[in-house]
Design a protein around this nucleic acid. Structure first.
Length: 419
RNA sequence: GGAGAGGUGGCCGAGCGGCCGAAGGCGUUCGCCUGCUAAGCGAAUAGGGGGUGUAAGCCUCCUCGAGGGUUCAAAUCCCUCCCUCUCCGCCA
């Protein structure tokens, strides 16, 4: 949710921001509604103030005077009820529209509406040229006996996988690798709940917009998170930090659940796009003036992690129209996937400015009063896709897979081999 | 799943129809004092919306878990829901 003051004082900037996202909103109607709701509120409050004053006087009166005063106050109470109902209805009408507005777009976010409009910032490493027929991760995994998607579909349907044996150990290695890399930078390891209540999803901007991507446990009014960003952000809901506590950084490890509604026929092979995967997610709470730098900082951590795994990748600045509702700016890192012959997203880091903190009421005490913090998130390790990238990029002609040096100390072996 | 207790400001904790947005304590901040960062003294100290003002400020409304209700008046009474804790049962 963005600041309502922006509608009143920076309407042109808001209109420009929406235009860059390709979102169409009738701001004139919204401004009109905003004015009417405030007027209604003032009318109701005037009557309420009179009613309260009258009520206080009653306590000091007796007999007929008292009876008369009660009758008068009674009328005021009735009037107030009608007026406040009016004001509340207008508020509700306004808010239902307002929460749908996406975050203000950062001027440095790339122009364009589509995924393809992302602007490449840099490429690191280069795709490997194979002197043998490279296999994809499904084939490699099956032959090595470390990945089974066929049985997964028997058990759970499409878009699931069993990660097995040494490949499972590589996941554990990746997690520890990520934590060891992040902890020195002040990230606290967290294992959050993956079932959350709806306020956490509203607070992070996934509801109402992206509700169709979220698994719901209707019997208990709980929802499975698609990223630990959700519980990590909501962790500090309704709290006020002391300024010197900031920045607060977390590295959350959790399973992530996504319905992938509307992606039929897209990335259907293997575990590239699945309903369930594990991820280490970075999350930061910072002062507003620090968020742009923090965003670069998170990107730097992502590059450090990927670079350490020796994977070829490129960094892109995501187009305004492809940002999602809560991000003002977003960088994706795309690693090279040999079987697809192209770069695909493996991490994503967003500066959500005060969009989430406003909804979650996360503030800090500053000299000029309490202010909303800025929140940012970024993928440290999306396990499934990294496992694919490692297998496909580091495969040998005999179907074995080389483990990057940085992981060997955690995994305890240097290769994935059959048998 | 069964039985009970409770949800009040940064924290603890009183209040149980009107003088309560809320005693008292702790903490924090500012000032004073004391020949050292201790004690003591004084003051300030919840969040949010709206109006007005260049601003400091002033006015006003809402919030004592959430939402309804009773009443001229609700933290206080009634209803529904949520959450936490204790005991029992079950369980990784």
């Amino acid at each position: 949710m963005i600041d309502i003051a922006i509608l009143r004082t920076q309407r042109d900037a808001l209109a420009a921001s929406l235009a860059r996202r390709g979102v169409d909103f009738d701001l004139d109607a919204l401004t009109d509604l905003d004015e009417r709701r405030r007027q209604a509120r003032v009318r109701a409050e005037e009557v309420r103030a009179n009613q309260k004053a009258a009520g206080k006087a009653i306590a000091t009166l007796v007999g007929e005077e008292k009876a008369e005063a009660i009758a008068d106050a009674s009328q005021l109470a009735e009037d107030y009820k009608a007026l406040i109902a009016d004001a509340d209805a207008l508020d509700e009408q306004f808010n239902s529209i307002w929460v749908q507005l996406p975050n203000m777009t950062d001027p440095t976010a790339a122009d364009g509406l589509e995924e393809e409009d992302a602007v490449e910032i840099r490429t690191v490493g280069s795709p490997r040229i194979f002197d043998f027929d490279a296999k994809d991760h499904v084939e490699l995994g099956a032959e090595l006996g470390v990945l089974d998607v066929e049985r997964a579909s028997k058990v759970s349907g499409s878009r699931f996988g069993f990660v097995m044996g040494d490949l499972a150990i590589v996941e554990f290695a990746l997690i520890r690798y990520a934590m060891d890399m992040l902890m020195p930078h002040g990230f606290k390891p967290m294992i959050p709940p993956v079932l959350v209540r709806d306020h956490a999803l509203y607070g992070t901007g996934f509801f109402p917009g992206d509700a169709e991507q979220v698994y719901s446990i209707t019997d208990d009014d709980l929802f499975l998170v698609g990223t630990s960003e959700v519980p990590l952000a909501a962790f500090h809901a309704d709290e006020i930090f002391d300024e010197d506590e900031l920045p607060v950084r977390y590295a959350g490890y959790s399973t992530c659940f996504r319905r992938e509604a509307g992606t039929y026929g897209k990335d259907t092979r293997g575990i590239f796009r699945v309903h369930q995967f594990d991820k280490v997610e970075m999350f930061s709470f910072v002062r507003p003036e620090d968020s742009a730098a923090e965003h670069e900082f998170l990107l730097a951590r992502e590059e450090e992690l990927l670079g350490g795994l020796e994977l070829p990748y490129r960094v892109v600045n995501v187009a305004a129209g492809d940002l999602g509702s809560s991000a003002a700016k977003k960088y994706d890192i795309e690693a090279w996937f040999p079987s697809q012959g192209r770069y695909r997203e493996v991490t994503s880091t967003s500066n959500t400015t005060d969009y989430q903190s406003r909804r979650l009421k996360i503030r800090y005490r500053s000299e000029s009063g309490n202010e909303l913090v800025h929140t940012l998130n970024g993928t440290a390790i999306a396990v499934g896709r990294i496992l694919i990238a490692l297998m496909e990029n580091n495969q040998n002609a005999d179907g074995s897979v080389q483990i990057p040096q940085a992981l060997v100390r955690y995994a305890g072996f240097e290769q994935l081999t059959a048998g």
